[in-house]
Amino acid sequence: MIITQQKDINEIYEMIKDYKKILIAGCDGCCQPPRSINEATVLGQLLELKFKTKGKNLTWRSITVLRQCDDKIAASTIRPFLDDHETILSLACGLGVVMLNKVADKILTYPAQNSQFGGAQNNGENSFIQYCETCGNCMLGMTGGVCPIAGCAKHLSNGPCGGTVNGLCEVGGYKNPCAWIEIYKRLKRFNRLDMFTLYRPARDYRPATSPAYIVINKPYTNEEKITEENK
């Protein structure tokens, strides 16, 4: 899930201060902490108060979208409201903001949030941790399920380095665990230390080149269909 943090209310105000009618769109997708309709309502209320301090009236409406990053869902949810609003404020991650700008291309969509990272949720601690950096070349199969790219400060493919003391990493002042020690522990527990001693060649970062673009289930073109039929 994408971990987000709401922007400062003044920053949001500065972005949208010239509009009079705004649509505030929450997202029920993976955005965490959850930014659904009630969060959108609270943001609307705050903005209305803010506008009033500048002697302006703001008309707003809060809605929520099942997943803003899906063009079909986003488009169908937003469509009925487009004519009545001058702009959209999105409470999704950056993907949602981009997607709303695409599907509602007559008006601008502004971000109300900063997207932080792709993270996992620890319910017990109410915390979110970045376990994956979406590097495009997964090596978790060799590291017992602990990612050295997201977990190691130096993104080392072969570790640990000399900067670990008592299982803690020198970066950040020996507070965070060394990912490679964790990897060692995991592999040892499953009796797969053979993988620990494997030499891992330098990583190929090309799959993670921005902008990343993947096509899945690409429909057949007419020419391809004819070729297939003729086989």
């Binding site: 009630n38 309502t41 609270v42 209320q45 705050l46 209305e48 108060l49």
Partner: peptide, 11 residues
């Protein structure tokens, strides 16, 4: 009492 009640009162 959610935040929206309080903000509504002010509004």
């Amino acid at each position: 009492i959610p935040k929206r009640f309080i903000l509504r009162a002010f509004l």
